[in-house]
């Protein structure tokens, strides 16, 4: 490498530029797909976790503990090497076939073992954390809210849907956005199973023309930029908490 000199053309031109473009697209796609899976998993887990019955809560508690206490990388490797192998053989063959319809714009294949394992792994991992953030937001809702709803004749699920969850979501929105941003950054781990996203491409450039520092700088900026845009969008779309200042409660003398 020989000291710190920079040559940006080696990264922002020719084949490396094309790789980077493909990498950005792949990162965006896998983040979006993971976002959907994570949201779905979070909803299911939360539903189980706040049910009134202990028997239903237990599986959710176990799932949360397992996925929180193991590294995401191990989970992704597991889904890719072991999980995929556990699928029925004809499913695997079907996924490995050519699917022109499953080609996303830019030439990123949706139905590949790498994309599926990464999406699923990121989705499950983040879903677990998101469910826990929302549950924490739920715990922070004043107990009087539940009582007021029950006293009005709301049942368990309606009380949750109309009274508790809107407040919990507003309480928890900032950390939830943090988890979605985390999902985007953690998609870099999918490089380990060969998903051609930004991190993978950056390493490819490094071994192609040894422009390591330039490639890392570009990669770093790309993640920062994606994170900034994504954070702004999510915060804008979130539940407005401006009008519901903490506690509608004023204490007496």
């Amino acid at each position: 490498m020989g000291g710190l000199t920079f040559d940006w053309i080696g990264v922002l031109g020719g084949a490396p530029l094309e790789w980077l473009e493909l990498g950005v697209l792949t990162t965006l796609y896998v983040t979006f797909a993971g976002f959907l899976v994570a949201t779905l998993i979070a909803i299911v887990l939360l539903g189980l976790r706040i049910s009134e019955k202990q028997i239903i809560q237990w599986p959710a508690i176990t799932v949360v503990a397992v996925f929180r206490n193991t590294p995401l990388l191990v989970q992704i490797l597991f889904w890719y090497f072991a999980g995929f192998g556990l699928l029925p053989a004809d499913w695997r063959a079907w996924i490995n076939d050519d699917h022109s319809w499953a080609m996303l714009p830019g030439g990123v294949g949706l139905l590949t073992p790498e994309f599926l394992a990464a999406t699923w792994g990121l989705g499950v991992f983040s879903g677990v954390f998101i469910a826990e953030e929302i549950r924490a937001g739920l715990m922070a809702v004043a107990p009087g809210q539940r009582e007021a709803a029950l006293a009005q004749g709301f049942g368990h699920w309606r009380c949750l849907g109309y009274i508790l969850l809107p407040q919990a979501l507003a309480n928890a929105w900032q950390p939830v956005v943090g988890q979605y941003l985390n999902l985007m950054k953690l998609s870099s781990l999918a490089a380990a199973i060969g998903l051609a996203e930004i991190t993978y491409q950056v390493r490819q450039i490094e071994s192609y023309n040894s422009h390591a520092l330039e490639a890392f700088a570009v990669g770093t900026l790309l993640y920062l930029a994606i994170g900034m845009v994504m954070g702004q969008i999510l915060l804008r779309c979130g539940p407005r908490s401006g009008t519901m200042i903490r506690g509608g409660i004023r204490r007496g003398p």
């Binding site: 004043a142 009087g144 809210q145 009582e147 007021a148 709803a149 029950l150 006293a151 009005q152 004749g153 709301f154 309606r158 109309y162 009274i163 809107p166 407040q167 507003a170 009008t243 519901m244 200042i245 506690g247 509608g248 409660i249």
Partner: peptide
């Protein structure tokens, strides 16, 4: 419970809803 009204010491209004929505929610949903 719909036939028994309960007024709390700490009011327990729903902070995410306006005064009007606080009143109409249970009317509509319950």
């Amino acid at each position: 419970r719909t036939q028994i009204g309960f007024v709390f010491q700490q009011f327990n209004l729903y902070p995410h809803l306006t005064a009007e929505q606080n009143i109409t929610l249970a009317l509509r949903k319950v």
